[in-house]
């Protein structure tokens, strides 16, 4: 009889032992986000499919869509339908094409009141690969729960854009990320994910137009900003 205790590493290698500091293994499908640092932090190694993802942004225009574009382009290239429900502005066709989205498979739903209903229909239909929705600020937990149920088990990437103030209220979405602008890109704070909580915020370099490094003076600026070093660099 060998009653010797197994070495610790052997025990830890067993499939039924879960370590508290490891991310939960998700059988559900994910799609690579296109950012290696982010994939390492997301359970399953990418944006989850079949569950809600909440993205909390205070202001538009900080690169929040650019963060998702690699994943959306991947879905679109595979022939999937994408839906934008109540987007704040209209998508600009040529820019969508340049980002790799197929415009004829990008549905824009302009719903003023029935945003939650539309999302539920789109998620439950199973015919969409990606659903991005901008719900009302006061969407309640019950509606979110319904959306989560509608998305469950379907191969759909469901993202909800919510204001940063929603971070204080609980939500049934298994993944919640707050986005903020940072000096050199976009700062992501994972508020909630399956597995251990994330400790530090993540800074990603998302593609931005123009040249970030220096300020180019426009015609109107010449007299005002003539003294700034940036303008000297251009001149």
């Amino acid at each position: 009889m060998n009653a010797l205790p197994s070495p610790l590493a052997e025990v830890l290698a067993r499939g039924d032992i879960w370590r508290g500091d490891a991310l939960a293994e998700l059988p559900a499908a994910t799609i690579p986000s296109g950012h290696a640092e982010l994939d390492a932090e997301l359970p399953g190694g990418g944006w989850p499919q079949g569950t809600l993802t909440e993205l909390l942004v205070e202001r538009d225009g900080i690169g929040e869509m650019s963060l998702l574009l690699p994943a959306l382009a991947r879905l679109s290239a595979a022939g999937g339908w994408l839906a934008l429900v109540a987007p704040p502005w209209l998508p600009y066709g040529p820019a969508c094409v340049a980002a790799g989205l197929r415009p004829e498979r990008l549905v824009v739903v302009r719903a003023s009141r029935q945003i939650a209903w539309c999302c539920e229909q789109l998620l439950a239909s199973g015919g969409f690969a990606g659903v991005l929705a901008w719900p009302e600020r006061n969407i309640d937990a019950r509606a979110l729960r319904r959306l989560q149920v509608a998305a469950e088990g379907r191969p759909v990437f469901a993202a909800l854009w919510r204001p940063a103030s929603a971070a204080q209220t609980p939500s049934p979405a298994p993944l919640r990320i707050a986005l903020e602008t940072a000096a050199d890109g976009l700062s992501l704070r994972i508020l909630k994910r399956r597995g251990r909580p994330a400790s530090r915020p993540l800074t990603l370099a998302v593609p931005r137009p123009g040249r970030n490094s220096r300020v180019v003076a426009g015609p109107a600026f010449s007299p005002v900003r003539a003294g700034s070093p940036a303008v000297k660099a251009v001149a």
Partner: peptide
């Protein structure tokens, strides 16, 4: 061919 007329510095969102 409309894709060709686009340069990389155009935004994703457009105000109506």
């Amino acid at each position: 061919s409309a894709e060709a007329t686009f340069s990389a510095s155009h935004p994703l969102w457009l105000l109506p």
